[in-house]
Nucleic acid binder design. Structure first.
Lengths: 231, 231
DNA sequence: AGTTCTTTACGAACAGTGTTCGTTATGATA
DNA sequence: TATCATAACGAACACTGTTCGTAAAGAACT
């Protein structure tokens, strides 16, 4: 209609543009996610990157939420779990969780996306299986192992996301909050006042605090508070 | 200009409309948050509810992030901490965290907002102070108490948010995932396969699982894995 | 070859979003 | 009564996810 006799010439610099595919879309999306976080991974920006319109993507992907799942899977592809033959069960457990945590910290977009997306990819199931196995080998009961796996993964994801979320805010506001804590009314909030250092020390020694949390969780799980609860 | 001789008649049904104020905005926003979650708490919807334009709100609030903080504080106003005189330190600790958890579960919007917003209100500081005090009374060291407080609050918020996030997805997709777990390849994922019941049981017995997690955390914190770490 | 049919591509539009700007109205003070 | 800071707000900007109708390209079949 409006431009019937238009020249059908490729609108892109590169001569033969790679045809669209879900793989290509996911890769491009992940690239944007790494660079600019979830905010930069919009349908329109992905489409622009692929030199097409946003509607073209919907051939290969149902909606953004779907794409999020695929991208999460794709990102988890970089996760390398420790060899299941070597080391004690605890070393393997901590090794896997640390690898997962480091990946989320290095790619904060992945941490971001992992919170709003229910993981259902193969790689994530491998991770669950790996941790379940380690906990069971460590002597945990069925329920403790299952709930403990959930708990540990929740911990890792939350901590990584929290770390990212705090980093997003400008340093100015952050030090404002620190000040609010150390300047806390020592009458109403005596403990916050005196422990403000410790409350924020986790910010600088991330890995130490992470490791501490793992240790806490593991010790608690091993005690199995369901079976031998001490009121 | 364009409509100079317009009739200056109140565009609203109610005759004398309450003048704007931050309080009123926050209240209205919280009402929307309770009804429709964060998605329903947009500047435009709040403005519409107050029968005005979105730009009017910016007199009393810097931006949406700011408003989120205020709304979070406002919502936390409903939190009732157990009387600090009665009961053991553990009863008070669990009482406070349970009250917080129940509030977040009853008002999922609050859980949602608590994740994207750094808490800096008075009410939240009261909560921190309360838990710090309980842990210290329970015999935790400075660092354990501080990091333990963070850990327990992170746990409560994350679990409440996770619960909400899962509920948002239609039941169809959710049972799909459950199926994916119980149908998991029993060769690649033997443990997931055999423990799929336990992995999902937390969905139905929320409070039991919540309580279990608290117990796990507390046991782990009490052991203070920093000072007596057993490699 | 010509015709049909399905898949892929994509421009335009819809209904939203947060935020800013410039102008108007209001109420208190000088 | 005149002045002036503040409050209110319409319009616009630059975004967002998603849908719809149409156009092109290929494959399959007559």
């Amino acid at each position: 209609m409006k431009n019937s006799n238009r020249v059908i010439v490729s609108r892109r610099d590169r001569p033969a543009k790679e045809p669209l595919s879900r793989e290509l879309i996911v890769q491009t999306a992940y690239e944007l996610l790494k660079e600019q976080g979830m905010k930069g991974m919009s349908m329109r920006k992905i489409a622009k990157e692929l030199d097409t319109g946003p509607s073209s993507l919907y051939v290969y992907v149902n909606n953004l939420e779907d794409l999020n799942s695929y991208v999460q899977d794709f990102g988890l592809g970089c996760l390398i779990l420790p060899d299941a033959e070597n080391g004690s069960w605890k070393e393997r457990l901590f090794g896997a969780l640390t690898a997962y945590f480091l990946l989320l910290v290095e790619q904060p977009g992945l941490a971001e996306i992992s919170f709003s997306t229910i993981p259902k990819g193969d790689k994530y199931m491998e991770l669950i299986e790996y941790i379940l196995a380690a906990l069971l080998e460590g002597g945990a009961g069925s329920k403790s192992a299952a709930w403990g796996t959930d708990l540990m993964l929740l911990y890792v994801t939350s901590l990584a996301y929290e770390k990212h979320s705090w980093k997003k805010h400008d340093a100015a506001k952050l030090s404002d909050i620190k000040q609010a804590f150390s300047n806390a009314d020592s009458v109403r909030f005596p403990f916050i006042h005196s422990l403000s250092e410790e409350l924020f020390s986790g910010d600088t020694v991330v890995m130490e605090r992470f490791r501490w949390g793992l240790e806490v969780l593991l010790q608690g799980i091993k005690l199995d508070p369901i079976n031998n609860r001490q009121t």
